[in-house]
Simulated scan of single mutants.
Amino acid sequence: MRRLPGGDFIMGSDRFYPEERPCRRVRVDGFWIDETPVTNRQFAAFVAATGYRTLAEMPPDPADFPGMPPEMARAGSLVFERPQGAVNPDAFHGWWQFRFGACWQQPLGEGSSLSGLEDHPVVHIAYADADAYAAWAGKSLPTEAEWEYAARGGLETEFAWGEELAPEGRMLANYWQGDFPHQNQLLDGWERTSPVRTFPPNAFGLYDMIGNVWEWTCDWYALPSLDNKHHGRCCIPSNPRGGLEQHSYDPDMPLARIGRKVLKGGSHLCAPNYCQRYRPAARYAHAIDTSTSHIGLRCVVRDRV
């Protein structure tokens, strides 16, 4: 882990997505944070010590899904599958597949394994799984503000390393190059996840804060307050937190009443033409009961006062 001193910083962005606005100055206390996302090797140690089963390893209860055919009541998770040709970028069903058996130890579904992936970030992690691992490790999941402060590395730029995504053509993170979801030029060398520490650390010595896998925070999703646009150093909010659980579902999807927590960092599926969330300010509201092949975690330990 690395200890960060805390302090104030500009959170959010006014240049990209509405949910990141407005830019506002906030302050966080000092804390320790994992240098890398939690790896398959580390998560395996947790499972060996506790016998824990992730949400993706447990079959759904048909009572929760009226009309579900019995043969579909099997454990699994969502796996990205690159389509053969161009598809409607708004139709995510064109590249996400629910695969039986997909979980942290079978990341591509039944018959797959972790061979050669021991030092890749663990994936197919639902929020409860991330929280359970953090508790076992004697740590916590970061708040959104803590995570963003760490990702910025002391900079107030759009990207974690400056104002250009690929300065002088250098790949500084694992993200998608080409037209998502069907064309991946692999300029960064990776189709899916990459081993942690593959790309350079940020100024705080932290790896993969951008790209590779999304990371859970402990904050419920809410839009930033428009009344909280602090650019000066007076009345700066300290250790801000997210929304209330009952307001954390997507208002555009009234039937989706499952609470949503904030994911940060983007993943290897973020692309210039789709989901430009490979930035510290980027955020995404994700249902706490859903796991995918590009969501993992990283932990913190807060200073005790």
Rank of each mutant, 00 (worst) to 15 (best):
H294Q: 13
A285V: 02
E164S: 13
P62V: 11
P66Y: 05
L226R: 12
Q105M: 08
T292Y: 01
A271I: 09
G232M: 00
N174G: 08
Q106A: 08
L108N: 15
I288Y: 03
Y278T: 11
L187V: 00
Q97V: 12
V301Q: 15
L206T: 11
F46H: 10
T290A: 01
R257V: 12
N202T: 04
Q42E: 15
G30P: 10
P224A: 06
Q42L: 08
D252L: 13
R283A: 06
R241D: 02
V262N: 02
H231T: 13
M1G: 07
F92T: 14
G51Q: 14
R277G: 12
L117W: 09
S112L: 00
P107D: 09
P272A: 14
A49H: 03
C275S: 14
G205S: 06
P142N: 02
C234I: 15
P254H: 09
D29S: 04
G116I: 08
H120V: 07
R3D: 03
W190I: 03
G259Q: 01
E164I: 06
A91C: 13
M58R: 14
L4E: 06
H124I: 09
G265S: 05
A173S: 13
Y149C: 03
Q246T: 13
E215Q: 15
Y274I: 05
H124L: 06
S115M: 10
V301L: 11
G243F: 04
A49S: 07
A132P: 08
S248T: 10
P142C: 00
D90R: 14
R41S: 14
S225W: 03
D303F: 07
P22N: 05
Y133S: 03
Y52L: 09
P121I: 07
E146K: 04
Q177I: 03
R257W: 01
D227F: 11
A282Q: 01
P251C: 08
I210C: 04
V122K: 00
W96T: 03
T143A: 07
E158Q: 05
